[in-house]
């Protein structure tokens, strides 16, 4: 079961007013109207995703009286690792004072990553490999974004989260999972020259052309907005239906839906399509934007803090995005 969640956002903020000065066709109020975002937090030049994740972990330890020495496994979901090697989770183990008897590894996923992380943690517990797992998520997409790319710079914010998952006798802690993958769309959300392949072919012929705003440089984030939007509309409603069926639930049995907090426009469209009532559909991105794999845990922590999410509630989580990859599950809070 999920025992506790904390999160951390970097100090520096990027407001719509600042962005509107760069993009004359997009006034600040228009950016907010479409994205639902007023400001996003941006990591400092010398601040990495693991720094943010370490701060989130320390908050978790402090806010919930958790001893780092009690952690048996550390998993870090990031697409902004400190190095290609070693694994960032190893550095975090040392930095956080997690015992050397703990396993630690990174996994590379974005918006679907938190659901995958819960799945991995559940598997480690079920397999008898660990009983207390620290799941960290953290990303700094801002470091990949071309400053003039209004379609990505308006959406993404940096951030990190820390979740403690514990073995529990409660049967319904973390329920059944739906996972899905469509690597055919890998090129639709990508930093092309970020790994060994160096330069990847963007799918200009196959699915519509260059980045929605500007040509991405090889080490910058490329997003084919229309393709990602279509992908989301295609996969999320069936994934939601499947995860409900698998867990023996109907829409009415669910107390809250927390989807990957992509942006207001996409979330509203998904909500209408899946006919989720507005009061059961949590959106909280105004001051942080789309924080990739941290968006679901940040939303959960905020929903708990503002009273929306109460003990005993049944919550459906759906993550979707870069990969292309998606995952859904049901948790009891």
């Amino acid at each position: 079961m999920i025992r506790a969640i904390s999160y951390h956002l970097p100090e520096l903020c990027l407001t719509n007013q600042e962005l509107a000065q760069l993009y004359p066709s997009w006034p600040a109020d228009k950016i907010f109207e479409k994205t639902g975002i007023r400001t996003r937090h941006i990591a400092a030049p010398d601040e990495t995703a693991s720094d943010l994740a370490a701060l989130a972990a320390r908050k978790l330890f402090a806010e919930h009286a958790i001893a780092p020495a009690s952690i048996e496994f550390l998993i870090f979901c990031t697409q902004s690792p400190d190095y290609c090697l070693p694994t960032t989770a190893c550095a975090l183990q040392h930095k956080l004072g997690v015992p050397s008897s703990a396993g630690a590894f990174d996994f590379n996923l974005g918006c679907s990553g938190y659901v995958y992380g819960l799945g991995i943690a559940k598997g480690l517990i079920a397999g008898g490999m660990a009983r207390r797992i620290l799941l960290l998520t953290g990303d700094t997409y801002s470091k990949y974004i071309y400053p003039m790319d209004q379609s990505t710079r308006t959406l993404f914010g940096d951030g990190a989260s820390a979740t403690l998952i514990e073995a529990s006798d409660e049967p319904n802690g973390i329920g059944g999972f739906v996972f899905g993958t469509d690597g055919a769309g890998a090129g639709n959300l990508i930093v092309p020259a970020s790994g060994a392949r160096k330069v990847c072919e963007l799918p200009e012929q196959a699915d519509g052309g260059v980045s929605s705003a500007c040509p991405a440089l090889p080490r910058q984030l490329y997003m084919n907005g229309p393709a990602i939007f279509n992908f989301t509309l295609d996969v999320v409603p069936p994934a939601l239906e499947k995860v409900l069926q698998m867990n023996g639930l109907k829409m009415d049995n669910v107390d809250l839906f927390v989807f990957h907090q992509a942006n207001k426009f996409m979330l509203e469209m998904l909500r209408r399509k899946t006919r989720i009532p507005q009061d059961k559909f949590y959106v909280n991105i105004e001051d942080c934007g789309n924080t990739v794999s941290s968006s679901i845990p940040i939303a959960l922590a905020r929903a708990a803090a503002d009273g929306t999410l109460k003990r005993g509630m049944r919550v459906v989580l759906v993550g979707f995005g870069v990969g292309l990859s998606w995952g859904a599950t049901v948790i009891s809070w």
Binding site: S25, W26, K34, Q150, S151, N188, A206, D207, G208, G209, S212, A213, N224, G225, P226, A227, F229, N230, L233, D234, F265, M266, M269, R272, K273
Partner: peptide, 29 residues
């Protein structure tokens, strides 16, 4: 103003109002 937001709005409208799927390739043509 035929920017990415307008393209997404057209895709969304086609999807919701008449059940049509417009691909990224189609919208950019």
């Amino acid at each position: 103003r035929w920017d990415s937001m307008a393209m997404l709005s057209v895709i969304a409208m086609a999807n919701e109002k008449c059940g049509k799927r417009i691909s990224g390739a189609e919208i950019k043509k």
